[in-house]
Design a protein around this nucleic acid. Sequence first.
DNA 1: ACCTGAACACCGTTCAAGT
DNA 2: ACCTGAACACCGTTCAAGT
Lengths: 228, 228
Amino acid sequence: MVKKARSSQRREDSLSRDRIIEASIELLDESGEDGLTFRALSERLATGPGAIYWHIANKSDLLVAACDAIVARMVDEHVVGGSPKATIRALALGMFDAMEAHAWVGTALIRAAGQLPTVRVLECIGQQVRALGVAADTQWTIVSVLLNYILGVGGQNAANAQFARTHGLDRSSFLDAVATDWSALDASDYPFARSVAGAMRDHDDRVDYLAGIDLILAGIKGTRTGRT
Amino acid sequence: MVKKARSSQRREDSLSRDRIIEASIELLDESGEDGLTFRALSERLATGPGAIYWHIANKSDLLVAACDAIVARMVDEHVVGGSPKATIRALALGMFDAMEAHAWVGTALIRAAGQLPTVRVLECIGQQVRALGVAADTQWTIVSVLLNYILGVGGQNAANAQFARTHGLDRSSFLDAVATDWSALDASDYPFARSVAGAMRDHDDRVDYLAGIDLILAGIKGTRTGRT
DNA sequence: ACCTGAACACCGTTCAAGT
DNA sequence: ACCTGAACACCGTTCAAGT
């Protein structure tokens, strides 16, 4: 039996929580959530699986931390001032794009409910809703609708990306498969799903998503004017 | 070494897809998503792990099927006629309660994006939105906002339940822990999260959720009147 | 046609032992 | 203080063999 050569060179700098998170993000981007294993990770970091546990509590902790790194970066980039509604739109789009670039973030965020990554988004939305002059007792409802809508879309997109990856489909053939599925549903039980199936094939997720955000924003009755 | 006695009695009826799904739901309800393993399942069904694969493709298929059974039951019970808006509210509440009774459904539903269980909900909402006389080009947006909000809340609740289970917390001590976490955030960076932390302790999830549904419904401008 | 259960190729996590 | 890597207790899935 041939001993497999240890190809990876020794790491130069010492291990750190940040380096582990960075490597995790790379791994997740390249091969999805299943691709993140302590063995693959430790190989990439040229160390043993046990070493990682010195810096990180467990896999769930690692995923939340990776998720948080993405969200923190995104919030920094997209929240730069501007009207409250414009900021909310920018944040929502930033989330969408971040979740598209890192398909695993959608589901990871939902699993991290109430933890730092979701609180960052909640806080940002909350501050803008306040700035709109929304009555105190409805602030929470609006923030919650926005946040849950964003997370719902993100989670579903992530699931779709995961499905496409597993079945080796690109984006357009995936949408095609869904459209075909929906068209094959029983005509009298699923009239609505069948009627939207065709549009599925060449619709723009991002445009639809933004329309949803705008619909919610349009319902806000603030004391100050929220100009876009 | 003592050979462990095979305590479970032989099954009386033969295996079937339905019986497997029923047993899976029991297992999931009792011990969460981690509790569903092919070994635990086959033991409960008094058979071998391999037998299950005759009826079910894989674990992901099994989870979607279990999820679908819950959703299908719920839709049957809650969609009984009434005004479109009342029906949407009833469906939304039905989903909430189903996801509370079966905490694993929230995340499973999101992972099943575009598949039968989510299409059932989509279809139901879609038919009601149509009945409200909403313009054709905004139907999809409204349906999408409602569906994604429902799934977002469900997914987060499921994650919270999972977290509470893992850490051995009951509901009130879990909320307490979240409130404490949020209160400990930096005062200048997280004013909004801190301001809502206190209310966290004794708020009613279900009431907040319904307020969100009503907020979205209130924004609908149909040609026909949607009375509640 | 349907079921059995050993075997395969993995996992996350721990921990004695090293530096 | 930080790292090593073998070992433990699991997984999902397959498949020859049985009925």
